[in-house]
Nucleic acid binder design. Structure first.
Lengths: 199, 199
DNA sequence: CAACAAGTGGAGGCAACCTCCGCTTCAACA
DNA sequence: TGTTGAAGCGGAGGTTGCCTCCACTTGTTG
């Protein structure tokens, strides 16, 4: 990344200031991550508080709504993905894009409950959520742009759209091993540039 | 209604036999259809019973779980789609497939809460649900097979997979008008047969 | 170490889920 | 047509999860 942009995370996550508050915040984040992974996005908040060893009131102090908690967990994932996109800068444009999308799908598939909602909501009202989405889109856009400029990807689409397509894949549950990969192949095939010819 | 096997639905919906029970069953189905369309798949069951003008116990008698109720509502939609597939038999293979997939997406998008889950669950434990899925897959398979045999669709995939891909599209919320169409274009492009060449 | 702001936790109100069971209604058969 | 058993009905109430509120505790700062 550029040096003007110090880090991938400008002000995504706003942590509490007091030491004990921070501690609880982290504990909640970990507990929520586990609970969401296990039980899906509708995991019981009281259970999460219990796992974290804090009172339910503390949970609500840090995360006024379920959305907020989901968002906070997303942020971790998003930072991971954005970092990963930067690492692929060495690969040829198409490979970088394809590789990253593959990572994206398999990664999101693990945390399916979370990944599914991420790119599916356009009308997300939460601001942090928007920023979070923007971060991923920016990272993906860079890869797509590079591929488009290199003439290996079709130019009549944007990463926002591609992201949705791929995000949908990650929502698929109980797929056979390799199935998602093949579906992604289809999408990638549709996305690859093809010279206009008689069809 | 007739005692002979009348239509596309062999034994999909098992209705209650007593007249009053049947009446309530239908009322619940209508109310649930409305409620799910308005509030999504997590609409309150007690509200549905209230809308239908029956007690909550009656709802549970007919539909032991939310899944069951969702399924029963699906069945109506599925029958519609299957019928529609048959009507496209006159069109050229590719057009029939493309048209039907387009219908599928736009139709499912209306009832997004329902459509999203339909093709996403592979590990659906409910048996009726399975059958329901089979009905759609059978209809879609016929269209895809025809296109494959005519040499206009790639042959290394099955409708199960395509259905998932397209089903994912219908889960997208808040898309701009025409956006879903373009995404479907990409999928269709990837699905269309292309002679193997230097790549 | 004092004082106060920041943070904590859980009791309690509310709503949805679901079960259970006494009452009602249908329809089958004499 | 009347009787009767089974099928169906409905809602009270137990359980659980959501969220608010506020009296108490604890970290921080001067």
């Amino acid at each position: 990344m550029t040096d003007t942009q110090p880090d991938v995370t400008p002000a995504l996550s706003e942590r509490p200031k007091r030491a004990d508050a921070l501690r609880n915040y982290e504990k909640l984040l970990v507990a929520a991550g586990e609970a969401f992974a296990e039980d899906g996005a509708s995991a019981s908040l009281e259970d999460i508080a219990r796992r974290a060893g804090v009172g339910i009131g503390t949970l609500y102090r840090h995360f006024p709504t379920r959305q907020h908690l989901l968002e906070a967990v997303y942020i971790g994932e998003v930072e991971e993905m954005a970092r990963s996109a930067a690492d692929l800068a060495d690969l040829p444009p198409w490979d970088a894009l394809a590789t990253w999308l593959r990572q994206f799908v398999s990664y999101a598939a693990t945390k399916r409950a979370l990944g599914a909602e991420l790119l599916a909501y356009t009308d997300a009202d939460a601001d942090v959520f928007q920023k979070c989405r923007t971060a991923i889109v920016t990272a993906g856009d860079a890869l797509l742009d590079r591929a488009q400029e290199a003439g290996v990807a079709r130019t009549d689409t944007s990463f926002i759209e591609v992201g949705r397509l791929v995000g949908g894949l990650s929502a698929i549950r109980g797929a056979e091993p390799g199935e998602i990969d093949r579906l992604l192949d289809i999408v990638l095939d549709g996305l690859r540039y093809r010279p206009p010819a008689a069809d």
